[in-house]
Design a protein around this nucleic acid. Structure first.
Lengths: 174, 174
DNA sequence: ACCTGAACACCGTTCAAGT
DNA sequence: ACCTGAACACCGTTCAAGT
């Protein structure tokens, strides 16, 4: 099997899930593919763009939503579905790398102001960043008492607050 | 002048401002102090705790606020007042390192729900993370057209939306 | 065209040895 | 007690050389 960009992204994604962003190095990706690190640079310009491709894969797993509240929930789930996903996506989005912008799939009510999407997105990213870090620390026993249900509740309350403040009716979270 | 924890934190803070988080290494801090890298470990347990101390310094620069809207603005200003400050503080807070919690200084109206503080904080961190990254990329000419006033406007609108949604009256931003 | 091997300029952290 | 020097096990990236 010849090396390819897709294979490299897939291998990187696997290392992310198994070992985390801190251990996701070009050398480790190369090892997983049975190849020298330098070979990767024939298919990918640098590590940053590889990470952006992994971030795109994470965001590509978002399911379509019928309401803004559902969209927010799907966004959060996508971020939390891969180890360190929130951190990776937040940085990829901030740098403007990557092809996928979740705000484009958001079901903004007709006549709605698009600013609410940015407010929601910042809350979602900040919230997921915090929750994911804490959940991972708790899983390692380095901090006690992270309650996942409580985190979801606080998240939904935050989303509801923002939608209420923007004058958007809150549909069921189905 | 003998090496000390305070001197190390100060040197790290200077390197952060001058070269950014990516170039803030233990070896560089040691160089700035005219000392070997290993010497730092006599005063600081590891890099993570040094970064947390720098994050505390950043948050320590927050001015007192009379309203939640002012508190949010002061929080944002503190994050943006040092290079990569938002990224550094976000990760320090998520890991639960550091001594300073900005939410403790927040003037929550009597009878107000503390959940709004978490919602506000996540928005502030997510928003500052994005704005600071973009501003720094624009300063390097790697991206065009970052409008700082527009970013402030969007931030204040987001804060206003959250406060409105939480049923808190919005005082003047003085 | 695609990959290896080796190098360059770095990392965080540890630790014997010196003072 | 405090610091040096050197090492260990790594990094991202480049590039001549091979096929």
């Amino acid at each position: 099997m010849a090396l390819s960009r897709e294979a490299i992204v897939r291998a990187a994604s696997g290392i992310l899930d198994d070992y985390g962003l801190g251990d996701l190095s070009m050398r480790r990706v190369a090892d997983a593919l049975g190849v020298q690190a330098g070979a990767l640079y024939y298919h990918v310009p640098n590590k940053q763009s590889l990470l952006a491709a992994v971030a795109d894969e994470i965001l590509g797993g978002m399911v379509a939503a019928g309401s803004l509240a559902q969209w927010a929930a799907a966004y959060r789930r996508a971020l939390l579905s891969h180890r360190d996903g929130a951190e990776l996506v937040a940085s990829s989005l901030a740098m403007g790398l990557g092809e996928i912008d979740p705000k484009r799939q958001a079901p903004l009510p007709s006549g709605g102001d698009a600013t609410v999407l940015r407010t929601l997105e910042h809350f979602i990213l900040g919230s997921a960043l915090q929750d994911q870090t804490r959940a991972q620390l708790a899983a390692l026993g380095l901090v006690e008492g992270f309650d996942a249900d409580e985190a979801i509740g606080a998240f939904e309350e935050g989303v509801a607050t923002i939608l209420r403040g923007a004058g958007i009716s809150i549909e069921s979270m189905a």
